[in-house]
Design a protein around this nucleic acid. Structure first.
Length: 454
RNA sequence: GGCCCCAUCGUCUAGCCUGGUCUAGGACACCUCCCUUUCACGGAGGUAACGAGGGUUCGAAUCCCUCUGGGGUCACCA
């Protein structure tokens, strides 16, 4: 291109370029580099002596350039809008613009779908393709995806959340066992520095903050189904029309077309994603849920497989299926299964107090939840077998006699005793999951704990 | 600031090209009620949008203009 006069060497120093830019700004114009004449051989010799290296700039034709785009439609840039940009840097390396055009040609690339921020770059790539006699791929510029607060969704968002938490808690040193002092200092000193994933996760746990899922793997870790992610992502910026919004990859493959891609940036709605994931999980067969729950746990929750053993692990999955919104929910919400009986913490909140009858005396003659708990010790200990039907039958019989048939007033205190809170899978499944010995041990501890409450 | 692009419920969007069938449809969220041994699910209903102003037309969310608002880009970064 140099030989053909399509490009030329330019010797301008950084200082000279800065000065030119400043001048343009002062005149309220955008700076556009133009051919500034060929230096004399004396000048070149002097530059060489100074140790200056030239860049190679492309001599951009001074004509209007029409960018053809399958998404945004054609757009014409006025002549002179694209300047004589650098295609080879001082160090001899090609710039991105030059490299990508050559690469696309060599790779026989047919479609270039990229973010909208590349739109004006495309003009540069097109004039280069013309100059080099290359084919032109089909271009499509997709809108960016934004956060609900209108900021651009980016992998930096994780660090943003952590920095905010650190600042709020006014921490001066990294919490024990999260990141090293060196990492910590470097990270806090420069907003462009990102923590590695493992460190970020440890720090998030220590700070008790939720990291936003950004990378595909983050969503997988959180228990989102790959097919749901594809479905949902496709819907941010595209739609098949006819009010269809649930579809699989096969459908996407057949129906996707660039002319239905939306031009406006979409906000990423995690709540709707969760709803989609919930629907997909509810639609799964018990067998599929079991299989995929096992796969998920093998990678992200191995401790549950180890602690529960396969039979009880499968029961946990079955018992959690219909209330799960993600593949991770059976584990995320049932941590009480992992802790030792001695370490189980009882939650002292309104619902717990109400269920146990703490602070509010029961109506005349009625027993409190705590009373039921005391009575259930004997009932449960005497059970010949520890199965859901046996447990339910025993509890029903007890409730009929002592709780006016209201099974809930017996079940709820039991739930608190074994899980520490008012939320768990169905109670009889939960008791089987916890096991007889642990249930009885937890019952004792809960009674002791609740008896001490005012 | 120059240039380019965009604009429908809180959010994702259908409709716009080929004006009337749009008193603008769906989904998520939200509100109300129902179901329920927790949580969740589920069921029934409801609130909610064409950014503003001018045209063109018998008729405009749909076509044109202006304004306003938003985004992108102006590197020897990719």
């Amino acid at each position: 291109m140099l030989a053909e006069g399509k490009a030329y060497e330019a010797w301008d120093s950084t200082e000279e370029l800065d000065a030119l830019r400043k001048e343009a700004t002062a005149r309220k114009e955008a700076f556009r580099y133009r051919f500034r004449g060929t230096p004399s051989s004396d000048d070149i010799a002097r530059y060489r002596a100074e140790g200056r290296q030239p860049v190679v700039r492309f001599r951009t034709p001074q004509v209007p350039i029409t960018i053809q785009d399958e998404v945004l439609g054609d757009a014409t840039l006025p002549a002179g809008e694209v300047d004589d940009f650098v295609i080879r840097k001082k160090d001899g390396f090609p710039t991105y613009h030059f490299a990508v055009v050559v690469d696309d040609e060599l790779m026989r690339v047919t479609h270039v779908l990229r973010a909208q921020e590349h739109f004006t770059n495309t003009a540069k790539h097109m004039v280069l393709q013309d100059a080099l006699g290359f084919r032109r791929p089909t271009y499509g510029h997709l809108s960016i995806i934004k956060n609900p607060d209108d900021s651009k969704m980016s992998k930096r968002d994780k660090d943003k959340v952590l920095r905010k938490a650190v600042k709020e808690k006014a921490l001066t040193a990294p919490p024990e066992g999260t990141v090293t002092i060196e990492e910590w200092t470097k990270w806090l000193g420069d907003d462009n520095v990102q923590l590695d994933l493992e460190g970020a996760i440890r720090l998030a746990e220590a700070l008790k903050v939720q990291l936003p899922e950004i990378n595909v793997d983050d969503f997988r870790r959180s228990g989102y189904l790959p097919e749901t992610i594809c479905n949902f992502l496709a819907l941010n910026g595209w739609s098949p029309g006819h009010d269809i919004e649930k579809f699989d990859n096969e459908f996407l493959k057949e129906r996707f077309s660039l002319d239905r891609v939306i031009k406006t940036p979409a906000k990423f709605d995690r709540v709707k994603l969760l709803a989609f994931n919930t629907d997909a999980i509810n639609a799964m067969s018990r067998e599929d849920f079991l299989r995929r729950g096992r796969e998920h746990a093998a990678v992200f929750r191995p401790e549950y497989l180890e602690k529960l053993g396969s039979a009880r692990f499968d029961l946990l999955l079955h018992a959690s299926h219909e209330r799960s919104k993600t593949l991770d929910d059976p584990f995320k919400t049932n941590g009480f299964l992992l802790v030792s009986d001695d370490a189980l913490a009882f939650s002292d909140d309104k619902n717990v107090r109400k269920a146990l009858g703490i602070g509010a005396p029961a109506a005349d003659g009625a027993k409190s939840g705590l009373d039921h708990l005391r009575a259930m010790r004997g009932v449960l200990a005497a059970l010949p077998e520890w199965t859901q039907p046996a447990l339910e039958a025993a509890a029903n019989a007890y409730a009929a006699e002592h709780a006016a048939g209201k099974i809930g007033s017996v079940a709820q205190p039991l739930r608190i005793a074994v899980s520490g809170s008012t939320v768990s899978p169905p109670i009889w499944d939960t008791l089987v999951l916890v096991g007889r010995d642990a249930t009885l041990a937890r019952l004792e501890r809960c009674i002791a704990w609740a008896s001490g409450l005012g």
